[in-house]
Design a protein around this nucleic acid. Structure first.
Lengths: 338, 338
DNA sequence: AGCAACGATTTAGACGATTCAATTCACCCC
DNA sequence: GGGGTGAATTGAATCGTCTAAATCGTTGCT
């Protein structure tokens, strides 16, 4: 009833456990006849390798942990897909963990992953200076930051130039004639959000007459976008921002919904730019302008860096890879279309 | 450098490994002074339990595998969240695997999960009669089918009455006066899709003059919905269906996009009903009517059944839990609104 | 004082796969 | 026929944790 072990396979094939192990790991050094006998035995008994035992013996697991801020955000599922693709090629497994932008949940996942002695961790951290994260690294688990530049030399990272993303969005809006602009995102303690804000702030400051208002949210989901949208709609038209730059597309979609619900027109009454360029952005009620990040490539590259780090061991030097974002202009921010 | 083991903790605290283990697992039976000494030692050395060793010893892991058809579909992320919630309460971990509606990938994930001797598997299978899946169950891994009724007594299952869902959608469209209706979904070999089709077929047959056309897709994603939409738009208006029932919301959203791109109005030229009622449905360009399934509840219930099965052991009797879907009528199928 | 009973702690195997040094065996050559 | 060679296989130790049984002290009770 219980799954048979290598020992039973060996017994049935009339060989020692060492030979069975050899058939599994270095089949070429086993005599063909013996090999066949063992393979038949494996099949007959329905033997399945026990990963826990392999792992214990090897000291290292073949699982990579990927901790993301929001699995429901297509940006992260794309990212996960990129990571998984490479993992698959290297016979490792990706375990996706959802921190929901909550440090407590994030910590819980890191604990679990460390107990599992994972091969490594890819993480979009809530706070990259988190002592727990540093402790994890210090105890020897390789960690690669994703969508977040490492601000110190302790780890590898893969990121996108968020300040540039913010500047692209800001420049576009200002050149389109907007002077009252809302920035929606949060928490501002998250580096990605802060950088996107810093980017647009730079260009807003350059154009002296631009008024940039900040609306901070706790979590960047559709609900919160809608709430801010209702807030904006309630403002007197004379002082209401005429454009909004959202730190992710979910917020932008929520904002768009609120505009529709309150009879405000997009982009006429409110131009909107999102961030990430998830698939739903182009498909929205009003196709959404968005700053595109190469999500799958981020994931794949992060996995590459991780494997590089593990293989190089002591000789490894941490690297910071930075990609460029790209502004996709669509109807939601473009009065000339639509 | 290497992570310390229980042995080193014991040595530093001047006790035996057994005592350390007791501190970890049954702290109450250890004398307070000793306990404190051990805990201090744990903290000082940065000891982290080795899950692989525990697992090997226990013979069963504390990880539950969840295999879904499409992680990018919010329906499944909601489902995963429901499952995770309960897992968290019971100190287990959920490992989400994406089969992408591909039997090969599904099989690969099942192999991996079996090697990991997971606590159990929750799966929305491509084909519930898959011999590999049955073999997995036969070798002793508890499996619960999710969003899919077990057609035989071999496993527990949690599902939603898909035929009813199809009937709800069909009845609504027919009562709204539609006579040429498209069904979009696939592959038809998937039970969920077949059932939804069977449901709408029932009511279409009852109303003698209804013409139901079937458009099969390989994968139910936004892209494919758009493709079918373009195909529909190209038909002469006199023979083009006036309504479409999509087997999931991603298809419906794609269809909606295609309608917008080809200047067809929704619902006037084409009424649309989706399935799952994902968050994006209500937020679409034209708010999307959809058959709602209680995704999170499905996930949570599946996890409940799994735990029940593991605890009951031999005495367990498989159960089939079936929920009722609910039709959410919105603008995309309702000429009286909008 | 002697024995029982109890609490605290230790000891000694598992669990299953891997690995490497040691062994066996067949064969070849001088 | 003895010694050497090399391929094939074996056997035992090991990874870190858990647990049942054994041990060691105390204390309490008569």
């Amino acid at each position: 009833m219980a799954t048979p072990s290598i020992k039973e396979v060996a017994h049935r094939a009339g060989v020692s456990v060492g030979t069975v192990s050899n058939v599994l790991n270095r089949p070429s050094i086993v005599a063909p006849a013996t090999r066949k006998r063992v393979q038949d035995s494996i099949k007959a008994l329905g033997f399945v390798r026990n990963e826990a035992a392999r792992h214990l013996r090897a000291g290292r697991s073949r699982t990579v942990g990927l901790v993301v801020l929001d699995v429901a955000n297509p940006f992260f599922t794309d990212l996960a897909e990129g990571a998984e693709e490479l993992a698959y090629e290297n016979d490792t497994v990706v375990m996706v963990c959802n921190s929901k932008t909550d440090p407590v949940r994030e910590g819980h996942h890191l604990d679990q992953l460390e107990q599992q002695r994972v091969y490594g961790v890819l993480i979009t951290p809530f706070d990259s200076a988190d002592p727990q994260l540093r402790a994890l690294v210090a105890r020897g688990t390789p960690v690669v930051l994703v969508d977040r530049a490492a601000d110190h030399g302790g780890m590898c990272s893969v990121s996108v130039d968020d300040k540039l993303g913010g500047r692209l969005a800001g420049t576009h809006l200002i050149e389109s004639g907007h002077r009252r602009i809302a920035f929606i995102g949060g928490p501002l303690s998250m580096q990605q959000v802060a950088d996107r804000l810093a980017g647009i702030t730079t260009v807003a400051d350059d154009a002296a007459d631009v008024d940039l208002q900040i609306f901070e949210v706790e979590v960047m989901g559709v609900q919160h976008g809608r709430a801010i949208g209702e807030q904006l709609a309630a403002l007197p038209p004379a002082s209401r921002p005429t454009a909004a730059f959202c730190a992710n597309d979910l917020l932008a979609l929520g904002l768009l919904q609120a505009m529709a619900a309150t009879q405000l027109r997009v982009p006429e009454d409110m131009a909107i730019i999102g961030y990430d360029d998830i698939g739903f952005a182009a498909a929205a009620a009003v196709p959404l302008s968005s700053v595109r990040q190469p999500a799958a490539l981020l994931g794949r590259t992060a996995m590459e860096l991780l494997q590089e780090e593990v293989e190089a061991g002591e000789r490894h030097a941490h690297r910071q890879v930075i990609f460029q974002p790209e502004l996709m202009v669509r109807q939601s921010s473009d009065l000339t279309r639509g």
